[in-house]
Protein backbone atom coordinates (compact mmCIF):
# COMPACT_ATOMS: atom_id res chain seq x y z
CA UNK A 1 0.00 0.00 0.00
CA UNK A 2 2.74 2.34 0.95
CA UNK A 3 4.58 1.50 -2.25
CA UNK A 4 1.58 2.68 -4.22
CA UNK A 5 1.74 6.03 -2.54
CA UNK A 6 5.32 6.48 -3.54
CA UNK A 7 4.68 5.17 -7.02
CA UNK A 8 1.82 7.58 -7.67
CA UNK A 9 3.84 10.46 -6.24
CA UNK A 10 6.74 9.53 -8.42
CA UNK A 11 4.65 9.54 -11.61
CA UNK A 12 3.39 13.03 -10.85
CA UNK A 13 6.86 14.33 -11.57
CA UNK A 14 7.35 12.71 -14.95
CA UNK A 15 9.03 15.22 -17.20
CA UNK A 16 6.32 15.55 -19.86
CA UNK A 17 4.53 18.61 -21.13
CA UNK A 18 0.94 18.06 -20.18
CA UNK A 19 -1.47 20.87 -19.47
CA UNK A 20 -3.21 18.68 -16.91
CA UNK A 21 -0.06 18.97 -14.85
CA UNK A 22 0.04 22.73 -15.27
CA UNK A 23 0.39 24.45 -11.88
CA UNK A 24 -0.75 28.01 -11.65
CA UNK A 25 1.62 30.21 -9.78
CA UNK A 26 0.82 33.86 -9.16
CA UNK A 27 3.73 35.33 -11.02
CA UNK A 28 3.27 33.01 -14.02
CA UNK A 29 -0.45 33.77 -14.09
CA UNK A 30 0.26 37.47 -14.40
CA UNK A 31 2.66 36.88 -17.28
CA UNK A 32 0.16 34.58 -18.97
CA UNK A 33 -2.59 37.12 -18.75
CA UNK A 34 -0.43 39.92 -20.17
CA UNK A 35 0.55 37.64 -23.08
CA UNK A 36 -3.06 36.88 -23.79
CA UNK A 37 -3.81 40.58 -23.89
CA UNK A 38 -0.83 41.27 -26.17
CA UNK A 39 -1.99 38.75 -28.73
CA UNK A 40 -5.14 40.75 -29.31
CA UNK A 41 -3.03 43.75 -30.31
CA UNK A 42 -1.77 44.23 -33.89
CA UNK A 43 1.67 42.84 -33.43
CA UNK A 44 4.17 41.03 -35.60
CA UNK A 45 6.23 38.99 -33.09
CA UNK A 46 6.39 38.14 -29.39
CA UNK A 47 9.57 36.77 -27.97
CA UNK A 48 9.32 34.26 -25.14
CA UNK A 49 12.69 33.35 -23.71
CA UNK A 50 14.28 31.80 -20.64
CA UNK A 51 16.61 29.05 -19.46
CA UNK A 52 15.73 25.42 -20.21
CA UNK A 53 13.27 24.09 -17.69
CA UNK A 54 11.58 27.40 -16.89
CA UNK A 55 8.27 26.32 -18.43
CA UNK A 56 8.24 27.83 -21.91
CA UNK A 57 6.82 24.77 -23.62
CA UNK A 58 4.18 24.34 -20.96
CA UNK A 59 3.34 28.00 -21.33
CA UNK A 60 2.85 27.78 -25.07
CA UNK A 61 0.81 24.61 -24.76
CA UNK A 62 -1.41 26.18 -22.16
CA UNK A 63 -1.92 29.23 -24.38
CA UNK A 64 -2.62 27.06 -27.40
CA UNK A 65 -5.24 25.05 -25.57
CA UNK A 66 -6.90 28.17 -24.20
CA UNK A 67 -7.04 30.07 -27.52
CA UNK A 68 -7.61 27.38 -30.10
CA UNK A 69 -11.34 27.58 -29.70
CA UNK A 70 -11.45 31.35 -30.25
CA UNK A 71 -8.93 31.92 -33.03
CA UNK A 72 -6.65 30.21 -35.51
CA UNK A 73 -3.53 29.32 -33.61
CA UNK A 74 -0.81 26.88 -34.59
CA UNK A 75 1.83 25.40 -32.27
CA UNK A 76 4.98 23.80 -33.64
CA UNK A 77 6.57 22.21 -30.53
CA UNK A 78 9.23 20.47 -32.59
CA UNK A 79 11.09 22.82 -34.92
CA UNK A 80 10.84 22.11 -38.65
CA UNK A 81 14.40 22.66 -39.66
CA UNK A 82 13.97 22.04 -43.40
CA UNK A 83 12.87 25.25 -45.08
CA UNK A 84 10.78 23.65 -47.76
CA UNK A 85 9.05 21.44 -45.21
CA UNK A 86 8.50 24.47 -43.03
CA UNK A 87 6.73 26.42 -45.77
CA UNK A 88 4.79 23.39 -46.92
CA UNK A 89 3.53 22.80 -43.35
CA UNK A 90 2.55 26.44 -43.03
CA UNK A 91 0.77 26.38 -46.37
CA UNK A 92 -1.17 23.30 -45.38
CA UNK A 93 -2.09 24.53 -41.88
CA UNK A 94 -2.90 28.12 -42.81
CA UNK A 95 -4.46 27.72 -46.26
CA UNK A 96 -5.18 24.01 -46.64
CA UNK A 97 -2.81 23.76 -49.59
CA UNK A 98 -0.80 20.63 -50.13
CA UNK A 99 2.40 20.54 -52.04
CA UNK A 100 4.03 17.32 -53.16
CA UNK A 101 7.24 18.89 -54.44
CA UNK A 102 9.48 21.56 -53.02
CA UNK A 103 8.15 24.90 -51.86
CA UNK A 104 10.59 27.71 -51.50
CA UNK A 105 10.18 31.02 -49.75
CA UNK A 106 9.42 33.04 -52.88
CA UNK A 107 6.64 30.69 -53.91
CA UNK A 108 5.17 30.70 -50.44
CA UNK A 109 5.29 34.50 -50.28
CA UNK A 110 3.30 34.69 -53.48
CA UNK A 111 0.69 32.39 -51.96
CA UNK A 112 0.52 34.50 -48.80
CA UNK A 113 0.14 37.74 -50.76
CA UNK A 114 -2.69 36.34 -52.84
CA UNK A 115 -4.62 34.98 -49.88
CA UNK A 116 -6.89 37.25 -47.89
CA UNK A 117 -7.51 36.97 -44.13
CA UNK A 118 -10.58 35.13 -42.88
CA UNK A 119 -11.88 37.75 -40.51
CA UNK A 120 -10.14 40.39 -38.46
CA UNK A 121 -8.09 38.00 -36.41
CA UNK A 122 -4.65 37.25 -37.76
CA UNK A 123 -3.47 33.63 -37.41
CA UNK A 124 -0.98 33.08 -34.60
CA UNK A 125 1.95 30.78 -35.16
CA UNK A 126 3.90 29.61 -32.09
CA UNK A 127 7.37 28.29 -32.70
CA UNK A 128 8.96 26.42 -29.79
CA UNK A 129 12.71 25.72 -29.56
CA UNK A 130 13.28 28.49 -32.11
CA UNK A 131 16.98 28.56 -31.20
CA UNK A 132 17.27 25.56 -33.52
CA UNK A 133 16.06 27.46 -36.58
CA UNK A 134 18.77 28.70 -38.89
CA UNK A 135 19.53 32.37 -39.23
CA UNK A 136 18.23 32.42 -42.83
CA UNK A 137 14.95 30.89 -41.83
CA UNK A 138 14.60 33.35 -38.97
CA UNK A 139 15.07 36.18 -41.47
CA UNK A 140 12.38 34.69 -43.64
CA UNK A 141 10.07 34.40 -40.66
CA UNK A 142 10.67 38.10 -40.06
CA UNK A 143 9.66 38.85 -43.64
CA UNK A 144 6.54 36.75 -43.26
CA UNK A 145 5.57 38.74 -40.14
CA UNK A 146 5.95 41.93 -42.19
CA UNK A 147 3.06 40.81 -44.42
CA UNK A 148 0.79 41.22 -41.37
CA UNK A 149 -1.06 38.17 -42.52
CA UNK A 150 0.40 36.08 -39.68
CA UNK A 151 2.00 36.72 -36.31
CA UNK A 152 4.54 34.72 -34.44
CA UNK A 153 5.34 33.82 -30.87
CA UNK A 154 8.92 32.67 -30.80
CA UNK A 155 10.08 30.68 -27.80
CA UNK A 156 13.77 30.04 -27.36
CA UNK A 157 16.56 29.60 -24.84
CA UNK A 158 18.57 32.62 -23.94
CA UNK A 159 21.44 31.87 -26.28
CA UNK A 160 23.38 33.61 -29.04
CA UNK A 161 20.15 33.62 -30.99
CA UNK A 162 19.19 36.53 -28.86
CA UNK A 163 21.88 38.49 -30.65
CA UNK A 164 20.05 37.96 -33.93
CA UNK A 165 16.82 39.04 -32.44
CA UNK A 166 18.55 41.97 -30.87
CA UNK A 167 19.52 43.23 -34.32
CA UNK A 168 17.74 46.38 -35.24
CA UNK A 169 15.58 45.05 -38.03
CA UNK A 170 14.35 42.31 -35.77
CA UNK A 171 14.08 44.41 -32.69
CA UNK A 172 11.52 46.71 -34.17
CA UNK A 173 9.28 43.84 -35.07
CA UNK A 174 9.20 42.34 -31.61
CA UNK A 175 6.20 43.75 -29.87
CA UNK A 176 6.98 42.23 -26.54
CA UNK A 177 9.71 40.20 -24.89
CA UNK A 178 8.70 37.91 -22.08
CA UNK A 179 11.28 36.27 -19.88
CA UNK A 180 10.41 33.16 -17.91
CA UNK A 181 12.55 32.54 -14.83
CA UNK A 182 13.12 29.77 -12.32
CA UNK A 183 10.79 29.50 -9.38
CA UNK A 184 11.60 31.19 -6.10
CA UNK A 185 11.80 29.17 -2.88
CA UNK A 186 8.22 29.92 -1.96
CA UNK A 187 6.99 29.19 -5.50
CA UNK A 188 8.87 25.90 -5.54
CA UNK A 189 7.21 24.81 -2.31
CA UNK A 190 3.77 25.66 -3.74
CA UNK A 191 4.65 23.91 -7.01
CA UNK A 192 5.68 20.64 -5.34
CA UNK A 193 2.81 20.50 -2.88
CA UNK A 194 0.15 21.56 -5.42
CA UNK A 195 1.40 18.99 -7.90
CA UNK A 196 1.12 16.21 -5.33
CA UNK A 197 -2.21 17.38 -3.95
CA UNK A 198 -3.62 17.59 -7.47
CA UNK A 199 -2.82 13.89 -7.79
CA UNK A 200 -4.33 13.19 -4.36
CA UNK A 201 -0.94 12.38 -2.84
CA UNK A 202 -1.58 14.21 0.42
CA UNK A 203 0.65 12.00 2.58
CA UNK A 204 3.71 12.57 0.46
CA UNK A 205 2.87 16.27 0.07
CA UNK A 206 3.13 16.63 3.86
CA UNK A 207 6.55 14.95 3.84
CA UNK A 208 8.05 17.98 2.16
CA UNK A 209 9.02 20.19 5.10
CA UNK A 210 10.92 23.46 5.03
CA UNK A 211 14.30 21.77 5.38
CA UNK A 212 13.78 19.41 2.46
CA UNK A 213 12.33 22.18 0.25
CA UNK A 214 15.40 24.29 1.06
CA UNK A 215 17.71 21.45 0.10
CA UNK A 216 15.84 20.84 -3.16
CA UNK A 217 15.92 24.56 -3.96
CA UNK A 218 19.65 24.75 -3.34
CA UNK A 219 20.20 21.83 -5.67
CA UNK A 220 17.82 22.82 -8.51
CA UNK A 221 17.85 26.59 -8.12
CA UNK A 222 14.09 26.54 -8.69
CA UNK A 223 14.31 25.00 -12.15
CA UNK A 224 11.09 23.08 -12.86
CA UNK A 225 12.66 20.42 -15.03
CA UNK A 226 15.48 19.69 -12.59
CA UNK A 227 12.96 19.64 -9.74
CA UNK A 228 10.75 17.15 -11.56
CA UNK A 229 13.70 14.88 -12.27
CA UNK A 230 14.99 15.11 -8.72
CA UNK A 231 11.69 14.40 -7.01
CA UNK A 232 10.96 11.58 -9.44
CA UNK A 233 14.27 9.97 -8.41
CA UNK A 234 13.56 10.60 -4.72
CA UNK A 235 10.35 8.61 -4.86
CA UNK A 236 12.06 5.99 -6.97
CA UNK A 237 14.61 5.48 -4.17
CA UNK A 238 11.83 5.39 -1.61
CA UNK A 239 10.15 2.66 -3.63
CA UNK A 240 13.36 0.66 -3.60
CA UNK A 241 13.77 0.96 0.18
CA UNK A 242 10.12 0.11 0.81
CA UNK A 243 10.58 -3.13 -1.12
CA UNK A 244 14.08 -4.07 0.12
CA UNK A 245 14.89 -2.29 3.36
CA UNK A 246 11.90 -0.49 4.91
CA UNK A 247 13.78 0.29 8.15
CA UNK A 248 16.02 2.77 6.33
CA UNK A 249 13.21 5.26 5.70
CA UNK A 250 10.61 7.15 7.64
CA UNK A 251 7.35 8.44 6.23
CA UNK A 252 7.30 11.59 8.35
CA UNK A 253 9.78 13.62 6.38
CA UNK A 254 11.80 13.41 3.18
CA UNK A 255 15.29 12.30 4.18
CA UNK A 256 18.13 14.67 3.33
CA UNK A 257 20.34 11.73 2.57
CA UNK A 258 17.89 10.44 -0.06
CA UNK A 259 17.62 13.92 -1.60
CA UNK A 260 21.40 14.02 -1.92
CA UNK A 261 21.48 10.51 -3.36
CA UNK A 262 18.89 11.57 -5.94
CA UNK A 263 20.93 14.65 -6.78
CA UNK A 264 23.98 12.47 -7.35
CA UNK A 265 21.96 10.24 -9.67
CA UNK A 266 20.50 13.14 -11.69
CA UNK A 267 23.86 14.86 -11.93
CA UNK A 268 22.95 17.84 -9.77
CA UNK A 269 25.73 16.85 -7.36
CA UNK A 270 29.12 15.94 -8.70
CA UNK A 271 30.20 13.13 -6.40
Amino acid sequence: MESNIYENSRDVFLDIVNTKDYIELDRISIIYQSLKDSIKKPLKMILLYGKPGTGKSMFLLKLYQNLQSSQSIYLYSTPILDESEFFKTLAQDLYGMEYSGELNFTQFMKVVEKKELNGPIVPLIMLDEAQLYSTNLMEKIRLLSDTRKMKFIIALHKTEKEDLIAKEHFQTRIWESIKLENASLAELKIYIQKKLMKANCLDTASMFRVKSINTIYKLTNGNYRDTNKLIYTIFDIYLYYIKNNPSRITSSEISNKIIEMSAIHTGLIDA
Binding site: T233, D236, I237, Y240, Y241, N244, K257, E260, M261, I264, H265, I269, A271
Partner: peptide
Protein backbone atom coordinates in the same frame (compact mmCIF):
# COMPACT_ATOMS: atom_id res chain seq x y z
CA UNK B 1 18.51 2.10 -14.02
CA UNK B 2 18.64 3.03 -10.36
CA UNK B 3 21.47 1.32 -8.44
CA UNK B 4 20.79 2.36 -4.84
CA UNK B 5 23.79 0.54 -3.33
CA UNK B 6 26.11 2.32 -5.70
CA UNK B 7 24.37 5.56 -4.92
CA UNK B 8 24.91 4.99 -1.20
CA UNK B 9 28.62 4.55 -1.75
CA UNK B 10 28.76 7.68 -3.87
CA UNK B 11 26.86 9.54 -1.18
CA UNK B 12 29.39 8.45 1.44
CA UNK B 13 32.23 9.69 -0.74
CA UNK B 14 30.38 12.94 -1.32
CA UNK B 15 29.97 13.49 2.42
CA UNK B 16 33.66 12.82 2.99
CA UNK B 17 34.47 15.30 0.27
CA UNK B 18 32.30 17.91 1.96
Amino acid sequence: MLNVNDLELKHKRYKQKL
